[in-house]
Design a protein around this nucleic acid. Structure first.
Lengths: 252, 252
DNA sequence: CGTGTTTCTGCACGTTTCTGCCGTATTGTG
DNA sequence: CACAATACGGCAGAAACGTGCAGAAACACG
């Protein structure tokens, strides 16, 4: 059996059964687990599957990436947020995406900043209420509990009624070829709509998002202004990105 | 079964049932409670759920925690909220006003309630995200910081696009002659607009609001269906109200 | 055909992760 | 306060992982 053939079989099996258990496949095919592990490692590197302990699962489930998320310390989000805040000029209309990274942006805003923050996240809006000077514009609609933001037709319509100077976007995957991706289709559409309303779009992505791919495309890399990340400059995923992305801003 | 698979199952179960009981899951899956506890601990560390004694509940993406905050709410608000919740029938479209009393209503909602909650308060919406089954419709607009709700032209327009079966209204003054009053003109107008969209309007007012008057009129008493309060039946203010108001429901 | 190179494969070894158990501490309940 | 349920940390065995290595197969090229 050819290697390529075997790997194809792995992918087929992955989509049909929703998972791969390395030990099982190795026994069925009569080859060592080492080879299967090597296959899975390569497939994962190519973005075709997600490696987990004992085997692999489809990328579509990558949103539950426990190991990497467990290692996400608030410190990295705080650094990224601090860098993002520097982009905001007094009087700007800032469109702020939902998510924990953008929530960190709220906490990083200078107390005397006079700007308008536009968001479709009730969580972000609720946090902003305590800020003394920013104006808050809330985009309404049906709340998707999965992502805790307003999505759908009503939210998109509300979004198209406004414009912003910059959009601070959060995604779960930033990949040199696959572009910006996230785990929910409606959410992806909403992010795209918001990006269309802003003069500049900045992506906020902590290190573990760099090189990752989620199921739904938000935007291609050429549609954004820059990526703000804390990924280490030496990482291969970041270097690949720097050859494709318009700009990469490193958060010290 | 893969570890990742099991943890995914836990999250699925968490969102579908609103909670996880470690002992139950351990028995069903035929593994030790220790492993489940370890899973829940890691998931909690990754921000996917919140650990509680005996298992886990959905994570608080909101500033206010769905459950724990309920324990620090004044007993009076809890009682009023409990009474108000009884008015909601499965499938209802409930318009929920902003404020601490209506926030207590969120915490008093049964976990299995299937209803649509419509609100112009980001705080209310953020708290509702924790609820396993209700649908949330957020009315957007400019956020007024003193009242922490969306008001103004855009919010009113969004409100006129929806209808509700009942409106749970919070005010700062309930007076036999002066009617229902509040402290902000824009806020009063928004409450009036919401009342117009609902078949029934119920006022939630703790004892100290009964007999009080604030600067801006929201509605006259004949425009509402009933008042829910915990005021003592003997108080003169309540007795005066009972001669004028359509109905007064006492929260035991 | 011969030879040097690359790729694939299995094995061995040390490391990491997972799991169940046990003793102890903590929490909830009456 | 007492009792039961639950949580936590440490421990040891098992399973899975990554890596380096060497042999085998496939390949490229003169």
């Amino acid at each position: 059996m050819l290697v390529a053939e075997r790997r194809e079989l792995l992918l087929t099996r992955l989509s049909s059964e929703g998972k791969i258990i390395a030990a099982d496949v190795a026994r069925e095919l009569g080859i060592s687990e080492d080879s299967i592990r090597r296959d899975l490692r390569d497939l994962a590197a190519a973005g075709h599957c997600q490696r987990v302990y004992g085997g692999a699962v489809p990328v579509s489930r990558a949103l539950v990436d426990y190991r990497s998320r467990a290692s996400v310390e608030p410190e990295s989000k705080r650094r990224i947020a601090a860098r993002a805040v520097q982009l905001i000029k007094p009087g700007d209309r800032v469109i702020l995406d939902g998510g924990t990274t953008t929530l960190a942006v709220v906490h990083a805003l200078p107390a005397d900043l006079e700007a308008t923050i536009i968001t479709h996240s009730p969580t972000i809006a609720a946090a902003l209420i305590e800020h003394p000077s920013v104006e808050i514009l809330l985009l309404g609609g049906r709340i998707y509990k999965h992502s805790a933001v307003a999505c759908g037709a009503a939210a998109a319509e509300a979004a198209r009624a406004i414009t912003g100077d910059l959009f601070l976007l959060g995604v779960t995957g930033v990949h040199a070829e696959q572009g910006l991706t996230t785990g929910d289709a409606e959410e992806a559409a909403m992010k795209r709509t918001l990006a269309a309303q802003a003069a500049d779009t900045y992506v906020l992505a902590s290190a573990e998002k760099i090189g990752a791919v989620s199921p739904y495309l938000v935007l291609t890399l050429d549609a954004i202004t820059a990526i703000i990340t804390d990924a280490s400059p030496g990482s291969t995923a970041l270097q690949a990105l720097q050859r494709t992305a318009p700009a990469v801003m490193l958060a010290a």
